[in-house]
């Protein structure tokens, strides 16, 4: 009998070791490139771990932590008070961990002569206060505004950072991700949109400088985001239920470690931790 129990225990241990799975859901900004690459790198030292990554927007990541359907919720925005309350009601404590910084770049078609915009002009364009490129020194033509969809953290972050929390112009077109926005702007001479730093090198687009109160045009970069001189910079998060533990903690530590932060930089984000 003892022998049988020992065999059963050994089998359980083996199956547990081989059955480890990390479910990560949320932000497209993080989940399109950075986290899948980080997962691959992590697997080199943890070959038994399986990853399930779903990048469908920050809202889905925060909801997944609330509903306990993921161990990590990726988010490019802070959890809203109502989301934190909803989580608390289910006994979940939202714990944010900054894994990288991102600069949200304003992009135009590469043929567009406009090279810089003021904070006010960006607000006017995305809210629909102005409708034609001539209003901001461009060639005649109506703006084609490309934004993220409403479940995206970037969608709401942009409203907060660039639009004084006002609503988007009714003519704006909602895209599924950064890559789609960059592709549409590249095709459309009157296009304008915003993408994360990691997507600013897409073909056919150009990043415009943002003129702030000091009248100096600033482009998004590692330096300007770290120095907080670029106005549209933001932290990106891993949300967990309380302090991460076990495999979740190992992956979070990996992301904040030298290898993870090097990946952050390689993919086009700004590291959260200097090594």
């Amino acid at each position: 009998m003892k022998k049988l129990l020992s065999i059963l225990a050994a089998l359980l241990c083996v199956s547990a070791a081989y059955g480890q799975k990390l479910v990560i859901k949320g932000s497209d900004t993080l989940g399109a490139k950075l986290v899948p690459q980080a997962a691959e790198a992590f697997k080199t030292t943890h070959p038994d771990v399986a990853f399930e990554i779903a990048a469908e927007g920050s809202t889905t990541g925060i909801a997944a932590i609330t509903d306990s359907t993921a161990q990590i919720g990726m988010s490019s925005r802070r959890a809203k008070p109502v989301e934190i309350s909803a989580a608390l009601a289910k006994g979940v404590t939202m714990k944010p961990t900054i894994v990288a910084y991102d600069g949200m770049a304003v992009i135009v078609n590469e043929a567009n002569p406009v090279t810089e915009l003021t904070l006010r002009q960006v607000e006017q364009i995305f809210t629909g206060d102005v409708t034609d490129w001539t209003a901001v020194g461009g060639n005649p033509g109506k703006f084609s505004i490309y934004t993220r969809n409403t479940s995206s953290g970037t969608y709401s972050d942009w409203k907060e950072l660039a639009m004084k929390k006002r609503d988007y112009a009714s003519s704006s077109q909602k895209m599924a991700g950064n890559e789609q926005i960059a592709a549409e702007v590249a095709k459309n001479p009157n296009g304008i949109g915003y993408v994360g730093l990691a997507y600013t090198h897409a073909p056919g687009i150009r990043v415009v400088g943002i003129v702030g109160k000091d009248k100096i045009a600033v482009l998004p970069s590692n330096q300007t985001v770290q120095a907080k001189t670029y106005p549209y910079a933001r932290p990106t998060f891993f949300y967990t239920n309380g302090e991460p533990s076990g495999l979740t903690a190992e992956f979070v530590d990996f992301m904040l470690g030298a290898e993870g932060q090097a990946l952050v930089q390689k993919v086009g984000f700004v590291p959260a931790v200097q090594h």
């Binding site: 802070r78 008070p81 934190i84 309350s85 944010p96 932290p235 959260a272």
Partner: peptide
């Protein structure tokens, strides 16, 4: 730090939610 600030924000929001 930014990280400490984020933790504080979340904690305050959670306290408020109670």
């Amino acid at each position: 730090s930014d990280q400490e600030a984020e933790e504080l924000r979340a904690e305050l929001t959670q306290e408020y939610a109670k």
